[in-house]
Amino acid sequence: MAESVRAELFARLREQETSVAPEQIARALAALGHAQPARATHTDLHTAFLANVLANKGTVELARDRGAAVQAIGRYLYQRFRTHKLVAGNDPRLAAMPWRDGGVLPRFGAAENGDSAALSYARLGVAETGAIVTYTGRANPGRNNLLPEDHLVLINREDVVSTLEDAWARIRHDTAASGWPRGIQFIAGPSSTADVEAQLVMGAHGPRRWHVILVGDTPAEVLAQASGGVGATS
């Protein structure tokens, strides 16, 4: 059945198309170029990124280095859940962090139902939309982004790119080396719904809170500018 349906469909399509060499199609496609990104909210890349994370109902924090990041995670877990427990994927970057210094007890692997917090080390951040990007795999199982109550994300300063097109250029570069992951997830906020009376509620099916920690030497003014006096940091 399926084979004949496929053949018929392709025959119909080809009947209507003028036959053109693939190289010519590729040239015509390249000539179309790409879309314009959204107007930037700030001229500084990291300010724009953090401002958009906040607009996406996330919370943000700065950490000078990995040590400071561990401390920040420890404080977050204690304040939110009075716990030191955390789930994280088998990301070598996460394995090498000084967990004991921050009193954090990570479990490395896939999140389970009932886990309060999971940590991802993002591959990319996108300033245009305030999204972070993760690839599924051992370093970050897909369910770690979805099952826990809170999703914590580390993102290196140098991994924040300007536009969605820049993000795909990086993804192409990464996957050329390591092959296509099963899933690529752009995450921009805690899970939310407006399906009842058009009222926005966080924590629809996935994480109720989304906390992004920008790792690297970022001046404190950047965060102040991004918050615009809203004071939405954790």
């Binding site: 959204a38 958009n52 607009a55 996406n56 245009e128 939309t129 305030g130 999204a131 296509w180 992951p181 099963r182 899933g183 690529i184 997830q185 752009f186 995450i187 921009a188 906020g189 805690p190 899970s191 939310s192 996935g206």
Partner: peptide, 13 residues
């Protein structure tokens, strides 16, 4: 400007 989740699924495990 962007939904909470924009995902690209490429196949099985």
């Amino acid at each position: 400007p962007q939904t909470c989740y924009t995902s690209f699924y490429t196949g099985p495990r």
